[in-house]
Design a protein around this nucleic acid. Sequence first.
DNA 1: TTGACATATACCCATATAGGTATATAATTA
DNA 2: TAATTATATACCTATATGGGTATATGTCAA
Lengths: 111, 111
Amino acid sequence: MARIPTTHDPFNAVAEPKRRAILEALGSAERSVNEIVELLGWPQPMVSKHLAVLKKVGLVRERREGRQRLYRVDAEKLKPIYDWVTPFERYWSESYERLDEVLSDIQKKEK
Amino acid sequence: MARIPTTHDPFNAVAEPKRRAILEALGSAERSVNEIVELLGWPQPMVSKHLAVLKKVGLVRERREGRQRLYRVDAEKLKPIYDWVTPFERYWSESYERLDEVLSDIQKKEK
DNA sequence: TTGACATATACCCATATAGGTATATAATTA
DNA sequence: TAATTATATACCTATATGGGTATATGTCAA
């Protein structure tokens, strides 16, 4: 068996940095393929192919207007990633480190 | 060119669900390979190989004790994922939806 | 030293890439 | 209808993968 297809889920789709760059370039805006091409400076087929992957996992929505195709982010499809990674946040967060400091301070005072 | 190696960064390492399962199984604990094997019920070589990937990107740390190798999560290596995905959270969060409600309420009252 | 245990690694294979280039499709305009 | 614009797709290739199985490595115990 090979690797999980990039179109299988958001985790795999977003593992490719160029696809993350596209999502960032879109932000909350709706943009045509050419706008993205100009923003990022990549060959047009490259942009189209990455958009196709993002579309297949639902990370972007496409709307046709004349000869243009307008894309926008469907951010909610990123929620599984957010939900998975968030529980780990407590291990590196500043408040967690502060908790350690507080605890060691208490121990010192108890001595 | 092919896909980015799984050992290249946390995004790619964690795109494989089995590796996420290992990180979840570890949690904040330190466990031997066999403990993970028993927890997940996978063949031992499979666990070792996935651990090798996680180790190479720094997502787990290995400590040798006798014939055992003890692994624990280095959660901070997940921070890039957290940092990347978090800005999108505002687009699906409840508070954002509430903002929409508030705005539409205001519009109704203005009529 | 020999055997048992814990873990890693070598090997094989089918598969889906990502990039590049050329071309097809679709919609508009002249 | 023909030319132009906007975008998608077909084709090629090198590459890393994940699973399975067998085996190597390393460590302890008898």
